[in-house]
Structures are given as C-alpha cells and as structure tokens.
Nucleic acid binder design. Structure first.
Length: 960
RNA sequence: AGGCGCGUAGCUCAGUUGGUUAGAGCGCUACCUUGACAUGGUAGAGGUCGUUGGUUCGACUCCAAUCGCGCCUACCA
C-alpha cells in the first residue's frame, strides 16, 4: 500500500466497477424493501454543494440498508425543467441569430432533445462522482414515454373528476418569457422605488381625491377609487364620480372596508383589477354595482400586451387607452404619463419608497399580474387528505417542527396554475374545435372516438404545456411504472423516506403527497428528512451572483486559484460583479482548494449533519477528515504489514464473520477493543436509524482514531514484536487486529464508500470473510463490501471487566506521560517506576500488563513498594488509590513537581468543596434521587483520598 | 406583521427525558524526524454556555422577558 492515501487513484475505478457489475440494482432478498426517490435534479443543472450534501445522506442510508439485507432501491432520474431547459436552447439559437419561432415548435423541440442527448447527462455524471449508488439501469426522465403517459393519465382523471378546470384569472405573468409562472416561482425582494401621489378630480368640481401608487401607469386600467366606509373624510363622497386623468373616463368612489386602511397614506386606493391581485379581489366584491358593471369590460380593463407594453385598442373600444401611450413599454409609459400629470397639475408629489418587487426566478423580469386563460388544479380536495396524512402520523417530518410549515402552507393553499406558455414540457391533452368546445383525453384519437367526432372534424390541441412540478409530483409512482401495475411499484411504493432541503417542501413535497394519496391511495413516503442549506465559510448562502458557489467536484479533485477565479467569473448574468467576486475569491481561498477526495467530503457532510441545521462549510474541517482517511489508510497499512502471510487463526469463511481456528489467546487489549467495537456498532446503527449522521460520524471517528489507532494498534506492538510472546497470543492479536479492521470498514462504508472498499478488498480475505483470490489484484475480486452484511453488535463480546482493566492500564500510561510531558522529560526516555499503596489487583495488573506499560509509558523498571518501604522523593501520579512514583533523582525538577502537585491539589480541592457543599445541603440529600446522592458521595470520597495522598506527597517534597 | 430557527473555546460544531470537572475537530503553545501515519505523536493553554429574571435541592438543558442574527410567509395602495 502507498504511504499516503490517494483518493484520486481509486474512486472512479471503483465506481465504474460497481456500476458495471450491477451492484446498484435492487436484489430480491427476504428482508424488507427500502426505497428512496432522488429529488430529480434539473437536467440543465450542474452539481452544487447542496446536491453533495443531499446525496451523501441518501447514499449513506441506501448503502446502510442494502448492507442490512433490505431489498434496496435508490431511484435516479432527472427533471425536464421546462423553462430552464427551453432557455438554454434558446440561448444556443441566439448565437445563430435565430429565435425559437424561426424553427417552429416541432423543430425546436427536436433541438432540445438533441441538446438533452448531448449535455443532459452532465449532472448524472457528477452524481456518480459522489459515489451515489443509484440504480442507473432504471434511470427515468420526466419527459420519457412512461412518465408522459402518467402525466396524461393524471390530467385526464383529474379533469373528469372536475379537479382540473380552465379559467380566466389573474396570474403571475413573466413578460420576458411570455408565460404564466406559479407564485412559488416569483421572488419578491425589496428595491428602491417611488410612490406617486396623484390627484383624481371630482366630476362635480368639488376638489379632488389623492391616490398614491407605486405603478402610476396602471391608472389607465382603473375602475374605481376605494375608501373605507368608516372614514369620515370620505364617507359622504361614496358613490360620487371621479375624472380619471389622461383617459376621459369616469370612475366611482366605492366603499371597501376590507382592503382600505384609513390610516395608511391618503386613505384612498385606486382600483386596477386587471393588474393587481388585491384590486381584483375588490373588483369581485363590487362588480355588480352598476357604476362598475356598466363600465367597459365590466371594469376589468387590461392595458398591457404580453410584453407589458401598453396595448392598442380593440375595434369596439374606441380610445379606451389613449393613443399617445399605445405601444410604449410599461416604464416608458410611466415616464410619459407622470410628465403629463405633472403638466396638468395633477401630480401632488413623488416620494422615495422601498417596495417589494416581484421578479421571475428564471428571467429576473418584473412580474405583472396579468389576465389570461389558464388551466388550474382545484387544490382544496387534494390538500385535505394530504394534511390528514401528516396529522395522523402516516407521514413523519424529521425534524418534527417542519410539519408546522407544511400545515401553514397547505391550509392557505390556492388553486394551482399548471399551464405554461412555453413549448418544452408535457403538452396539455386538451383539444378545441371551432365552436369553442373543449375535449380532454389521453390522445386525439381517444377524444375523437369518445365524442364521436369525424376524422375530418377540425381539432386543435391546446398550445400550452404543464408546469414541470406537475410531472415531478408524480415522481414517486411514475418512475416505478405507474399507470402500469408493475412489480417495482408493488415492491417499492410507498417509499421509505424523502430526503430534501426545506426550500422545496411547497414546490414538491406537498404536491407529491397530494398526488400520491390521490392516485396510489397511499402516501408516497413515510418520512421526510429535511436537511439544512450548505453555506460558505462566512455563513452566506451560495449563489452565482455572489460568486461563492463551490462545485463539489472541485472539492473532490481540487482546483487552483486561477481556475477557480475564472470559473466563478465566467458566463455571468451580471458581469459587473466579476471584479468583486475575483477579489473575494482570492481572499477567501488564496491557495485554491486542495484535492480532498469524495470520501472526506462525504464524511464532512455527515459529521456536520446535525438535524435541521445549516452547514457552514469549513475547509479546515474537510481537511481534518481527509486526514482521517489517511489515518484509516495507514492503520490498514500497518495491519497488512502484520497479518499478510501470517497465521491469523481464521477458520471457515462466512460473510461478515469467520470462525476461529486453532487455539488462540486474546490479550486484554484484544478483549477491550472487541468490546469497544460492539458498543461503537450499536451507537452507529442507532445514530443512522435516528438520522443523526453527525453522531454516526463521530462514533466512527472516535473509535477509529482514539481507540483503534491510538491505543489498540500500539498495544499490539509489544505482542507482535515480542519474540517471547506465545504463538497463541500472536494469533489472537492478529485475528483481532484484522477482524476489527474488517468490521470497522463495513461499519464505515455507507459514509465513505471508496476508501473502505479499497482497503476491504485487501483485508477481507485475510479476515476470512471472503475467499483469498490467488494473488490477483483486488479489482478482480467478485466480492464487494457493498453487499456484505452491516456489522451488528454482538453482546457476548461486550466485556466490562476488560474495559475497566484497560482503563487501569490507560490511566497508568497517561499518568507517566503527563509527568514526562510536564517535566520536560523526553517521552522516549525510560524511567524507573515505583508503585505504592497497591491493592492486590494493582499488583496483578502491573505484572500482567508489564509489556504494555514498558512499551507505551517507556518504563525502565517497575518496583512494588511495601507499606514499610520508604518512598523516595518522586513525581506522583494516581491510578485509583495506587501511587505511581517516578523518583526525582537526577531526572525531575523539585520546583516543577511542587507546582504540578499544587495545581492538581487545587483542582481536586475545588472539586471536593463543590461536592461537599452539595452533600451538606439537606434539601439535596432529601430530594435528589438516591443514586444521584450516592454518586456524589462516592465522588467526594474519591477526591478526598486522592487529595490526602497528594498533599502528603507535596509535604514530603517540600521538606527536601 | 406572523411563523420558525439560531446565539456554547479564536473558528466550525456536539451536548440525548435537568444530576460529568460543559465536549470534538481545526487553530494555538511546548516537545518529539520512535520502524502504520508529520495528512503524524505526546503534553498543554483556552468557555461566568448572548443578557436578566424565574421554577428547582440542582439549569447549557425547563419557563418568562430582553438583545443580536438568520430564514420563511404575508404584505399597505
């Protein structure tokens, strides 16, 4: 084995081997089924740290369950991401100076498929680099045939039940992309703007009302001004008419208690129902009032084109919209109209104003509320059972409090606008005839036959496609074959857990629950594990515009500073930020990123995955876990050096276990490490079962480094290197050495798949869990750690006696090391040791474990003093009540020892005082549970004894 | 405005139904090129657990208030 662990050398070839050999596919077992659906990444996407985190958790769970013998499926696939994908290809066309309309719908969609075949595999390639054991043989895509059938089926069934309908409503309109978007795709952020105060004159010449607005251009669509009916300033004017400036129209003053807050602004609100959601609601309440209903279009006046420019008048509208503004973009129109108002003396004032501006998350364009025909899912009947599923505990959120967020959203949910005016996506399965009739069916043929329409009867299919989330909502069953009743569907639905960030609970999680309950009559998953966000070292959200994104691949393979800078500053939406990003990058990662390897990154994610908490990514921490990999690697190297070609007392081969052969003897260290291993196995399994990946990682880390490496490997040396040690002892130690390592590798494999496989291939044959390959390279072995049984705690190997005896040994060694460390004695320098105040077991242990003590504490001699013996002046350590003495003679500085003792005595004293105070409080003794009181008593006795012993020692030295 | 969450060592984080001397990693200090590993070893320094009250024999842990920070939802024209 190489002296240092090199992840690069092994990761990709192992992954390839696993995939080629089909290890990721579920195998029929007699265990339970276990299934996770990948949150399908956007096919245009590229991997970010969130994916890294998310997939580490899922893969850990999947590998854990697969090793436990469950029939395990991790279902992969990607999402067609309607708008995003269409934009990618439109940008390509732009380079050729073409627009999608130049190609036409069919050709354009062909182009997208071409793009998908060429570049759509990017993200799945990256997922492989993370070690994700996804069942690639069954990879799905939301636009593939099966999933498209599922989409049609669901649409038709919901339509037939009256749960899908078409209607003219206000939607969030993206004037750049020319499509409706759902309210979840609109991001509102505070921006600086203005508030324009405008005068609307009363028609009776009795003055004017002042209305304030952030969007003055919408006044062209006003149908009223609303006041609060209890507002004394205005209530006498209700019903009177105003002159709507610039238009020549007259609009009424209406009373609306719900919408108008008399305290705010002037207390007068202009009502523009076709361009504001609140105003639309006001209009709905008042549209039957004659002063509104007799207005053109019943007062619901759209003023925009799909580009959000002022539209032209229809033939019958006359000059509803003043010709002067027609064709102007909304912001140009605003400018001109404000100037015109000013000129007419109708502008009261302009104030600076901060307002929330809604922008499309894809285009960045300011979203307009816009009146269009759209398809909707009636959501209330679907939401009700979805709420109940969580209330009843059929679905459990981890951490639990996310259910509140879920309820909050579900109880206020609005009908879902599912149509999008783009070309890439599932085309809505609805056809129209020239009479305006709508026919919905799985295909045109089905529609014709169902409605007895002749072949030459003209039908046009709806031009729109469905929201991408519509197909994603079906993911848990569509990917398993639905609407076919497949074996996979039977085996794996409902799935076990959904692992996701909280940001898509609304987008996706809630919709899957609704659709799953509706069409499978069962929940899509039993648990939802919600994890935090991955942030940069300063705690900022990673984003392209901030330039602080990290590509997990760069953490795995490393990247130099220059490449990182150019990566972060190229292809930006806002090139003016490049300089800032460059500076920030050079400051925060001055040496670029070293190659840490996949396993180290995964271990870091696991270690930081405390429930629900965001992860602030600390390079130092990743480095620490890279070092951990190296530690494990070198421990294995050491083990191999000692067991390869040696007799390890291995008997018959069984997966995960092998019988012992021949007589062997286990040392205290052997029994101790086996006992510790069992407890670690239990701790890790408990942690993973409870989604506490941080605890699992910590248990593995501590066992590996602090127990196996720091103590056990060292304790092996005096046995293995000692020519006097018996064969039985050596065989026992070798067997333990190799088998504990082999167990540890399996224990760690779910978190760190690569390094564990690489080492395991060498160790497993020696540990007797797989047959030895006859000198061939490990890569040719047909066994894999992936399919080995997950280690379970064997209670018969838990050995409390060995643990406490070992504690004695460790305390002994630590005591001497401490003296050496604090006295500036070279750790390697052998020292004579005297033992005083010894019990029988002290004497026994000292004799029995002499080789351990000599080797690890570097003791030169150990002499047991009788009570009659005179103790020479010494430095002292306590092991229980026994005094471990290192004679001062020549070695030790008296003053230093006095200082050392005083410090120790001080500590013990304050300890004893604290405990004493507790115990002398009658309330404590009376009210605290007996066990707690007893514990304090024992503690006090112990520290008093120690104190006594050290104080005597101190006096003795002081008298010298 | 409402909801959720966070504040523990210089930094990143643990702390299980209230009962240890409040822990780990990184960083820091000193010493150590010992034959698995300097991506290492040994020893050590470092915290009045945001603040203030309260409940309790006992509070990092429970309650209240308060300060600071973050996120989400709804927003006032």
């Amino acid at each position: 084995m190489e002296k240092t662990y090199n992840p690069h050398a092994i990761e990709q070839s192992w992954y390839q081997t696993w995939e080629e050999r089909g290890y990721f596919a579920p195998t029929k077992t007699d265990g339970d089924s276990y299934c996770i659906m990948i949150p399908p990444p956007n096919v245009t996407g590229s991997l970010h740290m969130g994916h890294g985190f998310n997939n580490t958790i899922m893969d850990t769970l999947i590998r854990y369950h697969r090793m436990k013998g469950d029939q395990t499926l991790w279902q992969p696939g990607t999402d067609h991401a309607g708008i995003a994908t269409q934009m990618v290809v439109e940008r390509q066309l732009e380079m050729e100076q073409k627009k999608r309309h130049d190609l036409g719908r069919e050709k354009f969609i062909e182009r997208i498929w071409e793009w998908k075949h060429e570049s759509g595999g990017n993200i799945t390639r990256q997922l492989r680099r993370l070690g994700s054991s996804l069942d690639w043989q069954h990879e799905r895509f939301t636009m593939d045939d099966g999933l498209s059938d599922a989409v049609k089926e669901v649409f038709v069934r919901l339509y037939e039940e009256g749960l899908i309908y078409r209607g003219k409503r206000l939607v969030n309109w993206d004037p750049k992309l020319h499509t409706a978007v759902s309210d979840l795709e609109v991001l509102s952020e505070e921006e600086n703007g203005h508030m324009w105060h405008m005068r609307y004159p009363l028609t009776n010449g009795q003055g004017h009302l002042i209305v304030a607005t952030t969007r003055p251009e919408t006044m062209l669509g006003d149908c009223a001004v609303a006041v609060n009916p209890s507002d004394d300033r205005y209530k006498h004017m209700i019903g009177e008419l105003l002159e709507l400036p610039l238009t020549g129209r007259r609009i009424p003053i209406i009373a609306d208690e719900e919408h108008v807050d008399p305290e705010f602004g002037t207390g007068c609100v202009k009502i523009t129902p076709a361009h504001d959601f609140n105003d639309y609601a006001v209009w709905q309440r008042h549209r039957d009032e004659i002063s509104i209903s007799e207005q053109i279009h019943g007062g619901l006046i759209n003023i925009f084109t799909i580009d959000a420019a002022i539209r032209d008048n229809e033939a019958e509208e006359g000059s509803l919209l003043p010709q002067k503004y027609v064709g102007l973009d909304r912001y140009e129109a605003r400018k001109l109209m404000v100037a015109d108002l000013q000129e007419q003396g109708l502008l009261e004032k302009i104030e600076d104003h901060k307002l929330m501006v809604p922008r499309g998350d894809r285009s960045g364009a300011v979203i307009e509320p816009f009146l269009t025909d759209q398809w909707y899912v009636k959501i209330a009947p679907l939401a009700k059972p979805a709420i109940e599923a969580v209330e009843s505990g059929k679905i459990r959120f981890v951490p639990d409090n996310w259910k509140n967020t879920y309820y909050e959203w579900m109880r206020n949910i609005q009908d879902w606008c599912i149509s999008r005016q783009i070309w890439w996506g599932h085309r809505i399965p609805a056809w129209y005839d020239d009479e305006g009739n709508v026919y919905v069916g799985r295909s045109e043929a089905e529609v014709r036959s169902k409605h007895n329409l002749a072949d030459d009867y003209v039908l046009r299919q709806d031009e729109d496609v469905l929201d991408t989330w519509f197909s994603s909502a079906l993911w848990p069953f569509s990917t398993l074959g639905w609407p076919e009743q497949t074996e996979r569907l039977k085996d794996f639905y409902p799935t076990n857990v959904l692992v996701t960030g909280f940001d898509i609970i609304f987008f996706w999680v809630a919709r899957m629950i609704m659709m799953g309950l509706k069409f499978m009559d069962d929940v899509p998953f039993k648990e939802v594990y919600v994890h935090g966000l991955v942030r940069d070292g300063e705690g900022n959200k990673m984003s392209k515009s901030k330039g602080n994104v990290l590509d997990p691949i760069d953490v795995i393979d490393g990247i130099d500073l220059e490449s990182l800078v150019s990566k972060r500053t190229s292809g930006m939406m806002q090139p003016h930020l490049a300089q800032k990003i460059e500076k920030m990058t050079r400051r925060s990662l001055p040496d670029g990123i070293p190659a840490f390897g996949t396993d180290a990154m995964r271990f870091t994610f696991a270690a930081l995955a405390a429930t629900g908490r965001d992860i602030k990514l600390d390079m130092g921490r990743i480095e620490g876990y890279r070092n951990f990999c190296n530690k494990l690697w070198n421990a294995a190297r050491y083990v191999m050096m000692n067991v390869e070609g040696q007799d390890c007392a291995i008997g018959e081969i069984k997966p995960g276990h092998s019988a012992a052969e021949g007589s062997l003897q286990r040392s205290l260290a052997d029994r101790w490490i086996l006992s510790r291993l069992q407890k670690t196995k239990q701790a890790v399994a408990d942690a993973i079962d409870g989604y506490r990946f941080d605890h699992a990682a910590q248990a593995i880390y501590e066992f590996t480094w602090n127990e196996y490496c720091d103590w056990y490997l060292e304790l092996c040396k005096p046995v293995l290197n000692n020519e006097q040690a018996s064969d039985e002892a050596k065989r026992g130690t070798r067997r333990t050495l190799v088998r504990v390592l082999e167990n540890l590798l399996r224990l760690t494999h779910p978190v760190m798949p690569f390094i564990t496989e690489e080492i395991w291939q060498r160790v497993a044959p020696i540990a007797g869990v797989i047959p030895a390959t006859d000198g061939d390279s490990p890569a040719e072995s047909t066994a894999t750690i992936m399919n080995q049984p997950y280690p379970t705690a064997r209670h018969s190997l838990i050995d409390e006696a060995a643990e406490s005896e070992m504690a004695w040994v460790m305390q002994f060694i630590l005591g001497i090391r401490k003296i050496k460390g604090e006295m500036n004695i070279a750790p390697g320098k052998p020292v004579p040791v005297l033992l005083a105040n010894t019990s029988e077991s002290d004497k026994l242990y000292a004799e029995r474990h002499r080789p351990f003590l000599d080797f690890l504490a570097k003791t030169e001699s150990i002499e047991i003093l009788t009570p009659q013996d005179k103790e020479p002046e010494s430095a002292t350590a306590l092991v229980g009540e026994m005094k471990v003495l290192i004679p001062l003679a020549g070695l030790i500085d008296k003053a230093a020892e006095i200082k050392r003792l005083e410090k120790e005595i001080n500590r013990l004293q304050s300890d004893a005082e604290r405990t004493d105070k507790k115990l002398s409080n009658p309330n404590f003794v009376d009210k605290a549970p007996e066990a707690v009181v007893q514990k304090e008593r024992d503690k006090l006795a112990e520290s008093r004894k120690a104190l006594e012993s050290l104080q005597a020692q101190l006096e003795k030295i002081q008298q010298l």
